[in-house]
């Protein structure tokens, strides 16, 4: 009996003293390798591929705000040379016209902004122009938010259902026309 008692083992234990050190090492590894960068960019939805026999729907001239960008990055806004920074206000004027000025759109839902580039246009300029157009729409949406009594938040911070409601009244119809001189 005495022999048996002697044999009884002490409870097996994993040494936990170094546990924190091991965890720390792993932690530091993942800390170093982690890149918490959020992908940002300008979102667009391309138009679906047109069937050959289907004609694109007709658009009234006044509903379309034409922006042309040439190979040197110069901008033609409704056939008038202008600066990139003027696009924003012009977009706001065009979309929120509601039929008052015959040169601009009939209603916000029918307003279209068309951007056409040449195939040598620098991408940087194109993004600047597109950015300005989007900022025009953001300004419209922000003033719409203020009108709804939600002036404290900007459009990007607004809840999704509000966004959907605003975009139903003021849809961002941006058309990207293909360059004429595109090689196939």
């Amino acid at each position: 009996m005495a022999l048996l008692k002697k044999k009884e083992r002490s409870e097996a234990e994993i040494p936990t003293a170094s546990m924190a050190d091991i965890a720390f090492l792993l932690l530091i590894f993942f800390l170093v390798t982690t890149t918490i960068d959020v992908d940002t960019g300008i979102g667009m939805v391309l138009p679906p591929k047109l069937e050959d026999d289907v004609e694109p729907p007709p658009i009234r001239e006044r509903n379309m705000l034409k922006i042309l960008v040439n190979e040197t990055g110069q901008v033609l806004l409704e056939d008038k040379p202008s600066g990139v920074n003027m696009i924003r206000d012009e977009v706001v004027k065009h979309v929120t016209n509601n039929g008052s000025d015959p040169n601009y759109s009939v209603s916000p839902t029918s307003a279209i902004v068309s951007i056409k580039t040449s195939s040598q246009t620098p991408y940087d300029t194109y993004i600047q122009v597109l950015d300005e157009v989007w900022m025009g729409y953001f300004n419209i949406w922000n003033s719409e938010l203020r009108r709804m009594g939600m002036g404290g938040v900007t459009y990007t911070e607004a809840p999704d259902d509000v966004k959907v409601a605003i975009r139903k009244d003021y849809p961002a119809a941006i058309s990207i026309a293909e360059p004429d001189d595109l090689e196939q």
Binding site: L46, Q120, P122, Y123
Partner: peptide
Amino acid sequence: VDETSEMGVVTRVQQELR
């Protein structure tokens, strides 16, 4: 897309995406 790229290549890629 690199900012110095030209629109031609971007448009071609977009056509392919469509």
